[in-house]
Design a protein around this nucleic acid. Sequence first.
DNA 1: CAGCACAAGTTGGCCAGCCAACTTGGCCCA
DNA 2: TGGGCCAAGTTGGCTGGCCAACTTGTGCTG
Lengths: 258, 258
Amino acid sequence: MTDMALDQDRAAGSLYRKVAADLREAITSGSFGEAGRLPAEGALAEQYGVSRGTVRQALAMLRADGLVTSRRGTRRVVLGTARVQSFSELLSFTHWARSMGEEPGGRLESLIRRPADAAEREHLRLEPGTEVYVTLRLRTLSGIPVMVERTVYPPRVGEVVAELPADVVSHTEPLREHGILFTDADHTIDVVAANADDARLLGCRRGSPLLREKRRTTDPTGTPVEWSQDRYLPGTVAFSIHNSLASSALSRHARESD
Amino acid sequence: MTDMALDQDRAAGSLYRKVAADLREAITSGSFGEAGRLPAEGALAEQYGVSRGTVRQALAMLRADGLVTSRRGTRRVVLGTARVQSFSELLSFTHWARSMGEEPGGRLESLIRRPADAAEREHLRLEPGTEVYVTLRLRTLSGIPVMVERTVYPPRVGEVVAELPADVVSHTEPLREHGILFTDADHTIDVVAANADDARLLGCRRGSPLLREKRRTTDPTGTPVEWSQDRYLPGTVAFSIHNSLASSALSRHARESD
DNA sequence: CAGCACAAGTTGGCCAGCCAACTTGGCCCA
DNA sequence: TGGGCCAAGTTGGCTGGCCAACTTGTGCTG
């Protein structure tokens, strides 16, 4: 067993992530059917040649994304087959894609530097006349175009982005190494019609509906580091949120007690 | 009564939840300082008299809630305690509309009672053969149709809903008076094409894109109380989310021009 | 003094096993 | 026939241990 673990270690990903990605794939491809039952944890462990604990770790990810149920005494049940972008992974397209076992890709279409307009100054809290870096990227999952990303960076961040190779997959990872952290984000989701650029890059008709996510990201101090508009092809992505009164109530209790 | 939630949390059976609750309180009360370091997992394990695995399970909760960092090779660091968000807007269309100064309206199109299908049983965690109440409502803002709401209620909730007048604006408010609380929700947002009913009720063409929000709501004990699909006309609404390493919140707001 | 090598400390990950709690279906009995 | 009991199956939870990967401080060396 130990040899096996060592053998699979070379592939640079943790075992439970591979198991999770594989199960995710099986679920979204409908292998277990809609509202079907998953094999027992023990059976999956034997099937993948891992321990039950590892399978449980993988299943915890799927449960967090709302893909499967989890109830003591009963087999797990498939809840939905749509790909879901959970908000714990919303801060990075790359991270999200990899967690699904898909290969994220990105192609830089353009990068220009110009003075910020009024809306951009507002979102990024810049002084009038400040220059911003604007990128247009086509993002792919396993080679298939799924999203067009238009991002505006303030100077401090844009200077780093401009130095990155055009084919770099993740922007947030190299930025983190430069001390630029993405920790907070405001997202707005709605529907928008594809313009000429969108249609050309995504291979859809002009005017066809796209799922739009507008996002403003800040670092821990609240300083904006990114203002972005992502436009997804319908059917490629869904957004998933869990919210609760209980958690906020709990922290309120904690504060009242001191 | 501030200790009540904590006591319940601590008394909630599993060891790792007790450890998590205790650490949560220690963190928010500042025991480790602002941006301070937590003791090592091994030290916590010894302190609480549990295994390191149990401590890791507890810390996974805190990390999921954005309370602490988690990086190989370094002690975990306290990120912060700020967590004040009102979710009331999110859980009720009526409340949200009023907070915008719009007059919410609702017209019940149909209410039927029938056995739950497999998917509904799973989402609402019902026994096979249980009957559910299914409503179809057209919701308006200041008289203008904006959303079609299809909701499936379990028997306990549906029995109350069925007694409500057809023109009642808010469902959640009378339900609250019957002791049925809406506190937790999982949301999924994507794009869907309008079917014949949608088109007729919303006054759009069949096949035109709608913004869809699927929502499963539970009460404080985790028992599902509602499984709903809302379909919004584009341009009438956008979903707004704030997420961060410290907290996560979703709200709904009227679309603004930008 | 600057820089590098190294060791100690810490978290990530995985395993094998054990018991408890819960669900389900079948069997038995009134 | 109907209801209750029971056993098998399944997930929740916990232990103790092991190794790998990474970070940090220390001390040595050029």
